[in-house]
Amino acid sequence: MSTVPIMAHMVSHYPDRETSLAVARALLDAGVAYLEVQFPFSDPSADGPVIQQASTVALANGFKVEDGFELLAEITAEAEVPVYLMTYASLVVSRGVEAFCRAAAEAGVAGLIVPDLPFDYDEGLYAAGSAAGLDVVPVVVATIAEKRLAEILARRPQSLYVALRSGITGSETVLDSASLEFLDRLRADGCRVFGGFGVRRREQVEELAPHLDAVVVGSQLVRTLSSALENPDEPQSAAPGVEVVGSRGANGANGRGSESTEAIRAVPPAARAAAVGAVRAAATELVSGSGSGTH
């Protein structure tokens, strides 16, 4: 089966530096076209429970923004594909927008994705980003007003990031024809288009790939990692089976409280290797349509 371009998402320092570096390497090995590294934030309200929980663990283990840049520098030195940094406004403005952009550029990242700094409330991110040579990527949705979309396109962004369903990351995407037409229109405009939110299966990837420059796979890979870390004895796969989380409500869905936060604290080497292996298999399956093989 043919290889498709994937933008693979991971959370920096989840559950710790070592493991997340190994995850980055595994994703790169699997042949992803882009890597998207998220800096953990205490209140990631545009993400679902899987990424929030991963962020909570990384923060409980002492993640600092400085550590994130240090890890990024190591990853980008090895990576042959572009690495994007995703995070929230609070981390960017706390460091100072210009200082943040400079640090990101020095760490070798290709671009920034900050969903709560839209172009018209951006605190200077777009200007500072381009001054630092970064591709600052606007996040759009298919339901965006025409006028706003025109304003965004008039700014000639290098790339666009399309959130393919209304709502948060981590729930199943339903690909309707209106969404696909929207993607085709954006690409006709000459932008590089990344799209995702809720992509889990190879079939979805194949369906989306013709309409995108890269299919973003976010929660699914983080989920593969967290399940493998929590249930080290069970075989892992990114195949359809991994059942998770409804979209509405927090009841129980993200109910892994402080206990499992503790449990994940020190990852034994064998568990780490197994979990990273699960991520590699999942990513390979998504990229190449082969290699999950754990069923």
Partner: peptide, 26 residues
């Protein structure tokens, strides 16, 4: 009444959860 178990499990986390609901239900 939905119990919020994410983050610090207090008011700020309830706001996050309400924002998530709204993003899918507006």
């Amino acid at each position: 009444v939905v119990s919020v178990t994410s983050g610090a499990q207090t008011l700020k986390d309830a706001v996050n959860e309400a924002l998530r609901d709204w993003a899918a239900s507006f």
